[in-house]
């Protein structure tokens, strides 16, 4: 039994206004651009859905979108299990807790572009510490400016280094909130370590993991600065993710119409996948 109370809208109004100013209005500009052609001087020509149609048929778009999904898929597949594993390995009490927490938080405090620049120098084959080590000590040819695979390995490794901590910290928060009695009961019930993880730790971490996965999805799907600073999308187009391609079209070629259409498609995909993740992961709670 529920009654309608219209007063609630009053409380939501300020938020609505705020969202309107910083999201809806800029977005309407984008929508405006996406259906028109412009040559500057405020000259606009109606294009209808031509940009959208063209984009959805374009191989370049498909390739960039594919790379974007590949990147995000790799990131989630590596960072989530790795983050949980590190969280499980961390001490739950004692002096080492704060040391571990600080170490974990450090990478996240570094600005995106600095991270990109750091890894760029770090992996240079001639003077970079890591690049030199791989090439001259391990004798494996490695140059991310020449070899697409090397470029991919580098951007993924960089992101794992930068952001796994987020998953670790969130998982850790979930883990420490489990009362001792659960572990004691499991010991008495004769549960294996795997069973403890599967039936106690994982269920108790579920809520924070949902948040971690959502954040990591959105961040990695929209990532721009770090790979752009690191590889600039190269070699060739091998690391040109959707976000990098978008900037190339908008600012490199100044094709505002297609860029606007691309932004909207990008936005819709992010929204849809996030919604899908969220619904799947919280489905059980609703029953």
């Amino acid at each position: 039994m529920k009654t309608q109370n219209n007063r609630a809208w009053l409380f939501v109004l300020p938020v609505l206004l705020l969202v309107a100013f910083n999201a809806l209005i800029p977005m309407m500009t984008v929508v405006n651009y996406s259906v028109q052609e412009t040559f500057g001087n405020n000259l606009f020509f109606w294009q209808g859905l031509d940009w959208f149609e063209g984009l959805l048929r374009s191989d370049r778009f498909h390739a960039a979108l594919g790379r974007q999904f590949l990147f995000t898929g790799l990131i989630l597949a590596i960072e989530v299990p790795l983050g949980i594993a590190i969280a499980l390995a961390m001490p739950r009490q004692g002096g080492w807790v704060s040391v571990c927490l600080v170490l974990m938080a450090l990478p996240m405090l570094i600005p995106w572009n600095v991270v990109g620049a750091m890894w760029n120098i770090f992996t240079l084959p001639d003077i970079g510490l890591l690049g030199y080590f791989i090439n001259h000590v391990l004798n494996i040819p490695y140059d991310m400016t020449q070899n697409p695979i090397a470029a991919w390995v580098t951007i993924v490794t960089m992101d794992v280094w930068h952001w796994t901590s987020l998953v670790v910290l969130l998982s850790y928060a979930g883990l420490v909130s489990i009362p001792d009695a659960y572990y004691q009961a499991a010991k008495i019930d004769g549960a294996s370590n795997w069973a403890v993880f599967r039936y106690i730790q994982l269920p108790k971490m579920k809520n924070v993991l949902t948040i971690a996965i959502l954040l990591r999805f959105m961040d990695s799907f929209n990532i721009f600065t770090e790979p752009f600073v690191l590889t600039g999308g190269g070699p060739g187009n091998s690391t040109t993710l959707l976000s990098i391609d978008l900037v190339k079209i908008a600012l490199g070629q100044f094709d505002l119409g297609p860029a606007a259409a691309m932004s909207l498609i990008y936005f819709v995909i992010t929204l849809l996948v996030s919604w899908l993740f969220y619904t799947l992961m919280t489905k059980d709670d609703l029953n």
Partner: peptide, 17 residues
Amino acid sequence: PSARSIAQVFQFPVIYD
């Protein structure tokens, strides 16, 4: 504990959610 064939019920219910 697991080798002692015992059971314990705690202050707060411990269940596998």
